[in-house]
Nucleic acid binder design. Structure first.
Lengths: 140, 140
DNA sequence: GCTAAAAGCTCCAGTCACTAGAGGATCAAG
DNA sequence: CTTGATCCTCTAGTGACTGGAGCTTTTAGC
């Protein structure tokens, strides 16, 4: 019960087998011991570590940030200022994305609302794309 | 004045030179005529086409959608139902993204608000990542 | 006319976080 | 004992570019 094959680890964590091997290759997971026939064997600590990685990925943290967070998680007595900093930076990045997507959303909705839904020559969607002066969004 | 080198086209449209060559390689731009010394020469029609592509990319349309939109733009007498359909599908996709990001945003904000900002062992950010039962977001 | 910088060319590799497939070995169940 | 599931490694593909090497050609200044 304590040692798992890669397939069982995948089952236990919801992370696909090739993704686990990928995480090993980029150093998010350590190289595990192998059986005589060269198969990977994982312990419960790896289950926890992989779950941590999965949750962080679900929240959109990048590989580098996750590497940092894992390092911090292993040092309980240190300050959590850095960990919070990573989360705060991520929050800001998400806010930026939401702002950009919301502006985009409104612009596309306007195009559609203004379109008489007739022929291409009067199609607002095509018109806005063809002529930047017709659209609202900022350059960058 | 009417024929442009790739550099001038880049200047006129705000699209980088390598990106223009990339668009040619994926069929968004036609292969242009060349000078005797093998340099690309572009006409004003290509300037318009490339601006169209840039605006569409800025709005987040994918290459395939842009290809379709360009084809439609060239057929003014056809119905614009398809063009509007592409835009509407894109709008829906953006709304989904915004919804997901907003949920994420709130979750990360909660983690940060709940964190006593002390040591790692009491850090909410690390705790939530380490244990899924502490967090709000849905599986998928 | 000469030289040096700028711009052009092709081709290849890298980005991010996986995902998929080939081709082969090994294991578990019936 | 066979069949199908699982495992292994290695390579390549995804989207939409971006950057670099190593080359030729053009352009500007003197």
């Amino acid at each position: 019960m304590s040692l798992l094959t890669i397939g069982k680890l995948a089952e236990a964590t919801g992370v696909k087998v090739p993704t686990i091997r990928y995480y090993e290759s980029v150093g998010l997971l350590p190289e595990p011991p192998r059986t005589d026939s060269n198969r990977r064997l994982y312990d419960q600590e790896t289950v926890r570590r992989l779950r941590f990685i999965r949750h962080a990925r679900e929240m959109g943290f990048e590989t580098d940030a996750i590497r940092d967070l894992l390092r911090m998680a292993a040092q309980p007595d240190r300050s959590c200022r850095q960990a919070d900093g990573i989360a705060r930076a991520h929050l800001t990045a998400i806010d930026d994305k939401i702002a950009r997507l919301t502006a985009l959303r409104d612009e596309i909705e306007h195009m559609l609302a203004d379109c008489p839904q007739d022929h291409i020559y009067s199609c607002k969607v095509i018109e806005v794309l063809a002529d930047h002066s017709h659209c609202l969004h900022a350059e960058h």
